[in-house]
């Protein structure tokens, strides 16, 4: 996989102390390191976005059934739990976009790989600066802020 490979880390299932984890902790650590975690989130976000895209095509298709049908089914997106799901969508799209940009830069300018960890940290800062206010803006109306 060229998408987000962890730079130079050996593919072991062992922690720094030599212990091997199974279950959720093992999923997060079996290749070890930040690079693997970024790769895993990128992949999950991509699958989540694809799933939402299918749903979104279905809801837009309902436009063809007229205003009444479309607007009454759209109420589905105005429920509080839909706002919470929406935060996952914004998280996924912003993460996938910013992490994808880093992967492209690394692929076409491999010399930056020396500083991959720094790039990941810069990326995470950029991501949080964009994502946190975006998530706040979606959730604040739920408690009337």
């Amino acid at each position: 996989m060229s998408d987000g490979a962890a730079g130079g880390r050996p593919a072991t299932a062992a922690s720094p102390r030599g212990a091997t984890f199974t279950g959720p902790r093992g999923w997060l650590t079996y290749r070890g390191g930040l690079g693997y975690l970024m790769w895993a989130i990128h992949r999950l976000a991509g699958l989540g976005i694809l799933l939402f895209l299918a749903l979104h095509i279905a809801d837009i298709f309902l436009l063809g059934f007229g205003q009444h049908v479309f607007d009454s089914l759209l109420a589905f997106y105005n429920a509080p739990w839909a706002h919470v799901m929406d935060v996952f969508l914004v998280f996924g799209v912003l993460f996938h976009a910013i992490n994808g940009l880093r992967i492209i830069v690394q692929d076409f300018a491999p010399r930056v790989m020396i500083a991959e960890r720094k790039l990941v940290i810069i990326e995470l800062v950029v991501f949080l600066v964009v994502f946190l206010p975006a998530a706040w803006a979606l959730l604040a109306p739920l408690w009337g802020a």
Binding site: D71, H83, D86
Partner: peptide, 8 residues
Amino acid sequence: GVDNLNFQ
């Protein structure tokens, strides 16, 4: 704003 989206 998602809540303002509708047919119109």
